[in-house]
């Protein structure tokens, strides 16, 4: 325990940031899954990843170290991806394979950019698989602030957003909702920030693991919410701390496995 405390001091921002972000991503993921849009979010994430890698390439080419470029290009490409999917693909009955094609297209472009910019190789691995232990304090604080703000919005509008998801799944949403627009915008922003600072794998895992375990065994919306938060918060915290026990243990897989373990525990406990 005494050796853990100095480590926790080192990760004083990255630990709370990644744990809170995991919880907020879980809340986002559950609503997108309810809207039958998980494949869309998967593609959105890959589009955003490509934008972030392009931003890194721009930094390498210009000899600068301006992280805002990655965030900006990531956001822009994520937004274009979302627009493309909503306007051209969403209404098609065979949309899932189009989403997969788009995913592969973005992945191929990401690899192409990294291949043409050898200096990016280590950055690409970090942006894809992530390493919470090497997250910058600035990145961690930004993510923590964003996640806390958006998390508060989600929690205070949880029921309303869930009913909106119900209407969207039921094809009966005929009224505009500014809260839903804010939800879409916040999703784009938070997933981009998470992918940039914590990686694609962590972001996608945190979006979908908690809801996969919590949805079927919950009696109502409230118990579902509690289970989701337990899986995301405790699972991530546990996984992060376990990863600190050895330098051979990478953070992101430990955090995701921690979430799955917690999910499994809650799933088996009736």
């Amino acid at each position: 325990m005494t050796s853990l405390l100095p480590l926790l001091q080192i990760y004083k921002w990255s630990l709370p940031s990644s744990v809170i972000m995991a919880a907020v991503l879980a809340l986002i993921g559950s609503q997108w899954t309810a809207r039958e849009k998980s494949a869309q979010v998967f593609v959105l994430g890959q589009g955003t990843s490509l934008g972030i890698v392009l931003g890194l390439a721009v930094n390498v080419l210009l000899g600068t170290d301006f992280h805002g470029i990655s965030l900006l290009i990531g956001l822009s490409l994520g937004w274009i991806t979302l627009l493309l999917m909503d306007l051209l693909i969403k209404a098609k009955s065979d949309r899932n394979h189009i989403y997969l094609t788009l995913f592969v297209f973005f992945l191929a472009l990401t690899y192409l950019v990294s291949y043409m910019t050898p200096a990016l190789e280590s950055h690409i691995a970090a942006s894809y698989f992530g390493d919470l232990a090497v997250m910058s304090d600035a990145g961690a604080i930004g993510c923590l602030a964003g996640a806390l703000l958006f998390g508060l919005f989600l929690l205070s509008n949880w029921r309303e957003l869930s009913l909106r998801s119900f209407q969207l799944a039921n094809h009966s949403a005929i009224h505009q909702s500014w809260k839903n627009r804010l939800f879409d915008l916040g999703t784009l922003l938070l997933t981009t920030m998470a992918i940039q600072s914590m990686g694609y794998l962590y972001t996608m895992g945190s979006l979908f693991i908690a809801t996969s375990f919590a949805a079927s065994r919950s009696q109502n919306l409230r118990s579902y919410l509690v289970k989701m938060l337990l899986i995301a918060l405790l699972g991530s915290g546990f996984g992060f701390v376990v990863s600190l026990q050895s330098t051979n243990l990478p953070t992101v897989p430990c955090v995701l496995l921690g979430q799955m373990l917690m999910g499994l525990l809650l799933y088996t406990k009736k």
């Binding site: 029921r159 869930s162 119900f166 799944a169 809801t211 949805a215 009696q219 109502n220 118990s223």
Partner: peptide, 12 residues
């Protein structure tokens, strides 16, 4: 419709 979230009739 089988909805992903565990909504009760009261929620709806």
């Amino acid at each position: 419709l089988h909805f992903h979230l565990p909504l009760t009739l009261r929620d709806v």
